[in-house]
């Protein structure tokens, strides 16, 4: 017998919050630290939402989205730093370029 068919759907609002914050972290990963802030929050909420021996599907989604958001945010930060360094070395900083 299918276990999911017998058990009623669990009301896990924290898993839902994790998924929402994880998606926000991906959206804001191109911003300054949005991906890291919301991504870490999504991961924490996903971990705290596990009240069964398995992860809720929404919590799993939030966990993955949060990690992706954090990675994208770090990558975006590295790209910005590299770009600034390249701009500084090529003389753009002295020609009116300001970040």
């Amino acid at each position: 017998m299918n276990e999911q068919a017998v058990h009623p759907k669990d009301d896990n609002s924290m898993a839902l919050g994790s998924m929402v914050v994880g998606i926000i972290s991906i959206v804001t990963s191109c911003c300054c630290c949005g991906g890291i802030i919301f991504g870490s929050l999504a991961v924490v909420l996903a971990c705290l939402s596990r009240v069964e021996t398995y992860f809720d599907k929404r919590a799993k989604t939030g966990l993955i989205c949060g990690i992706i958001g954090m990675v994208l945010s770090i990558a975006a930060g590295i790209v910005i730093l590299v770009y600034l360094a390249a701009a500084g070395s090529s003389g753009l900083a002295g020609s009116g370029f300001h970040y």
Binding site: I36, I37, S40, V43, V44, L45, C47, L48
Partner: peptide
Amino acid sequence: GISLLAAFSFGLAALWLSPY
């Protein structure tokens, strides 16, 4: 580990982590 993650969220996750 989870405290380190909470620190990355600028203390926002501490609202949940501290009671946990």
